[in-house]
Design a protein around this nucleic acid. Structure first.
Lengths: 397, 397
DNA sequence: CTTACTTTCTTTGTAAATAAAGTAAGTACA
DNA sequence: TGTACTTACTTTATTTACAAAGAAAGTAAG
């Protein structure tokens, strides 16, 4: 039998995952993209082929030199389950190694209920039961809040009303699968780097607008976590001198100026919508060409553009990726955003690409699944014990 | 002879540098702080002792267990030269491995002169000539601007009026020593992490106020460089909606609101100082208790506090370190800074320590020297060929 | 004085990864 | 057609590093 250590599992599963996502890939390419020597790839691929996990495929046409032989994954390496947890609903998806969503479901959910964790566990259990076939590698859960080290997976979330909830441990016992719990924006950032517009870039800034405003920063291929994993709180960037009061107690935070609540409030105060109507009503009006409604989004876009320019100037990412429920009305933001954003950028950054994504719930859930699917590339072992278990499942035939 | 590869040089020089800076340190401590196994330390220290580079010293008192044996550096490992380049002067220092400055000199300099590079080279050459004794490891140069990959060391700097100047190459040829050229804030950040208040922390935010406002971000022990090494442009964080025009073309940039020029301008407009007086005059007035002068600093402190809170919320560092010429009047900033800063922080970050440093030119030059002295710990090989040369000098007896 | 435990350092075996040098299989061009 | 050059992969020897286990030297109890 082959050697079987944690380090070897990382390398082997990284090769397997890389081949699977690319649907075939040469040895030389693996060596380059995984940043190891060709010799090591030769060794590991030989083992993986012998084990029946990898198959040699056709030779590519030569581009001046020995033609590369493509390697393909022999079996389906297995899928991951991803789950987005919101205050009033959960969305679950099944995701293939290449990032494709093969199944999805959304259920009502009450985070503040006493038995919320039991309900969540039951919902996931039922979803997993219906898995048509093949192995499951693990479950990723994205929550709006802070998560401690993965050993326990304890969640603090004001949005969900959870304090010190040992979600990871509970689900692990209930499901009998590896479970990784993470902040939802963090999870999304990993997904963007792995499958989204961030693919191939080492420096990303991912910003989400919705109830709150959050950010994920990928620098030099590593996720920026900060002192206690709390990095990315872009929602409390002070943006107006005497702006509206924010939940955090401050005034003029970005989130308090252009969060969903703030925009709805503005529309209500000007009598644009009824006092029980939501942001959707404002967007509908804007869609119909109402100038006052459009102006709300233009103003928000302007403020947002300046704030994003500041963040881009500070962090120098290769791409700026925007998403979240707030992006549903993005086309109304653009006229305010673009000029404010571009003009506030320093010249060197002025051409930075901005990608606005509109996909919603399923994207977040896919992000959660990518917590599982990215473990082969987790050289810093941030996912700890759970990551190790997932990598072993990658390699079990 | 002992094995001799790049990786081994990193590890060995890291041990040597660590022992030197600590003035003696046990093997167990080395293993913990350099994050390698105790076994590896045993192997390498044995070699280094045999080579006469390390000496076993006295045993420490036991803290329950086998008493630790201190290891000391046998010879002086050598010094580094650091040089701060400004538009009108240069400051050069000689720095020991432990960060102590042993010699310093400041000269007038004209960056825009045609023969600026020749003058700089000559000044450094003369400074190095006077080195009393011992080896020199290399020369670090900190410039206010962008530097490309270290292979050439090409500088772009609007402040100095340099475009595409191959400073690294020129100095290397002239001095016959390894030369590392870097952005000055980047260099300073490395120094703070190595010798300053950042020692022992993996997540730092270093901000400098002077003519401009700059930032260095250390995340998880790595310097954040961004797409093209341009990260840290905090001076162009938009902070006022319709603020003063900035050099960059935007309005209300942090730098345009509280940079040296902006504060001087304010004081001139209100007739507080003569139109040819500098910021020093404003500070003098504030020192004497002039309320109008003090108010200028209080207002600047307030704006600065909010901006810093935004950056801390976003990046979640362990310490915030402030320096630069602008800090000379820091005590006048504090009444504006502290309340604005603390109240705009989200609760989790509210207790973050803020360290304000007043040391000036020599601190910057020491930062430049730390480019050389930090190469043993540069596991990402960012300093490239020059780093390799410096590490070899570390290990040459 | 014994037992249990902690910490520091050392030894041994083995795994991971690379460098260097060679082989294989093509292209480009005279 | 042959020579030079690329690129892709393989083999071999060597290096780096760690895990595991043990030895040494102490503390802290009973």
């Amino acid at each position: 039998m082959k050697p079987h250590t944690a380090q070897a599992d990382i390398t082997r599963s990284a090769i397997l995952a890389h081949v699977s996502t690319r649907h075939g890939c040469s040895r030389a390419q693996l060596a380059r993209e995984l940043r190891v020597s060709p010799a090591l790839i030769t060794q590991y691929t030989r083992d993986l082929i012998a084990d029946g996990l990898l198959v040699p495929l056709a030779h590519e046409a030569s581009r001046g030199g020995r033609p590369a032989q493509l390697l393909g994954s022999a079996t389906t390496t297995g899928d991951a389950i991803g789950c987005k947890v919101a205050a009033d609903h959960i969305t679950m998806v099944q995701v293939r190694v290449d990032g494709m969503i093969t199944r999805a479901d959304t259920l009502a959910f009450e985070a503040t209920a006493g038995a919320a964790v039991q309900h969540l566990g039951a919902a996931l259990h039922a979803f997993i039961e219906q898995t048509p076939t093949g192995r499951l590698l693990g479950v990723g859960v994205g929550v709006p809040g802070d998560v401690d080290e993965q050993t326990v997976g304890t969640v603090d979330s004001t949005q969900l009303g959870w304090r010190g909830l040992p979600l990871g441990d509970s689900l692990r016992r209930k499901l009998g699968l590896p479970v990784i719990v993470e902040n939802n924006v963090t999870a999304l950032t990993i997904a963007e780097a792995l499958y989204g517009p961030g693919l191939g870039h080492d420096n990303l800034l991912v910003v989400t607008i919705g109830t709150g405003v959050g950010a994920g920063i990928m620098s030099n291929g590593n996720l920026l976590r900060g002192r206690s994993g709390g990095a990315g709180e872009i929602g409390h960037l002070p943006i107006q001198e005497n702006g509206p009061l924010c939940q955090c107690g401050g005034h003029g935070c970005l989130e308090a100026v252009l969060g969903e609540r703030a925009l709805t409030q503005q529309a209500r105060e000007t009598g644009l919508i009824r006092s029980d109507a939501s942001i959707d009503a404002v967007r509908d009006l804007a869609d119909q060409g109402d100038p006052a409604a459009q102006q709300i989004f233009i103003d928000a876009g302007h403020t947002f553009g300046r704030a994003m320019a500041g963040a881009v100037n500070l962090l120098d990412p290769e791409v700026l990726i925007l998403l979240g429920e707030g992006m549903l009305g993005w086309r109304h933001w653009i006229p305010g955003f673009e000029p404010a954003f571009r003009s506030a950028l320093i010249p060197r950054n002025r051409a930075i690409p901005v990608v606005a994504e509109t996909l919603q719930d399923e994207r977040w859930a896919q992000g959660a699944a990518s917590l599982v699917l990215s473990t082969p590339f987790d050289t810093q072992e941030h996912s700890g014990e759970q990551g190790r278990l997932i990598r072993q499942r990658f390699l079990k035939p």
